[in-house]
Design a protein around this nucleic acid. Structure first.
Length: 267
DNA sequence: CCCGTGCCCTGGCGGC
DNA sequence: TGCCGCCAGGGCACGG
């Protein structure tokens, strides 16, 4: 599932192919992915100026508009030289160089939205995002967590608190920080919050350098697979020995999410 | 406002 | 072999 490193990988692999290209036609094959009837019309003849990433969103900066795309669980992009439509293709952007940028999504969970060029960061959904770990102020996050009555895992998955982390990297971050995912946030000491943020930064950077994580059915643009799955220490490692203490890694549920934990190391 | 639950959606897998 | 039911989960709507 694409989290910050996977989205960054998609963004940077797409960008060189798209900059300077103009969208000549848009076909939406599954309407629930968009929020407006004139989606196609609004994008025609818009030039792609640059791509960006905010949290788990890809931002397409266009001539007059800002298009944002969230891949949710299994959204992918392909650049195709032909007009063939494959299973789970839902949006086709026809470019002026003859290439088709195709959005493909098995689960149909992804979303697109067209926002204004100047205020897109102040409009939903981007306005709801907390800072990414690398921009987070430890003091500020500590104060937010003090006031909350949820588990640390739930808080780290909440994009309003901190953005970019998903199920995989939260598990990895908490393992590295030796903190149990069910620990209530108000019980965390300042140094623990600091450690969590530092580890999140370190893990996300390392994952970006490896092109993200490829597990389950997720792979990024144009079939490029990430390699960070080989570095996972806890996520997916049920019944395997913990790398620190050899005790069996367990799988539990935290706010409905499959969660991997070493109960000996994580307190 | 805060938090928990259910929903969206499809494919893969375990059980029989 | 086939069918059924469950599971995977990011973000959002909704209700208490």
């Amino acid at each position: 599932m694409p989290e910050l490193p996977e989205v960054e990988t998609v963004k940077s692999s797409l960008e060189p192919h798209l900059i300077g290209k103009t969208i000549k036609e848009v076909k939406v094959l599954y309407k629930n992915l968009i929020d407006t009837d004139d989606f196609e019309k609004k994008l025609v003849n818009q030039k792609i100026i640059k791509l960006n990433r905010v949290g788990k969103f890809i931002i397409f900066h266009l001539t007059d508009k800002t298009l944002i795309s969230h891949l949710r669980m299994e959204g992918k992009y392909f650049l195709r030289e032909n007009n063939d439509i494959y299973k789970h293709d839902h949006v086709v952007f026809k470019l002026d160089n003859g290439l088709n940028l195709v959005y493909n999504d098995v689960r149909k969970f992804g979303r697109f939205k067209i926002l204004s060029k100047d205020k897109y960061l102040n409009e939903k959904p981007l306005s709801n995002l907390g800072p990414e770990p690398k921009n987070a102020n430890v003091n500020q996050i500590f104060r937010i967590l003090k006031k909350k009555n949820v588990s640390i895992k739930t808080a780290l998955l909440d994009q309003k608190v901190i953005s970019g982390l998903g199920n995989i990297y939260v598990d990895e971050t908490l393992f590295e920080s030796k903190i149990h995912p069910l620990k209530k946030t108000y019980k965390l000491k300042y140094f623990e919050v600091k450690k969590i943020i530092e580890n999140a930064i370190k893990i996300l950077e390392s994952a970006i350098n490896m092109g993200g994580t490829t597990i389950r059915t997720y792979y990024s643009t144009m079939g490029i697979d990430g390699k960070f799955q080989n570095r996972l220490k806890i996520h997916t490692k049920i019944n395997q020995p913990c790398l620190n203490c050899k005790q069996k890694i367990e799988k539990i549920k935290v706010s409905g999410r499959g969660t991997y934990v070493c109960k000996n190391c994580q307190k």
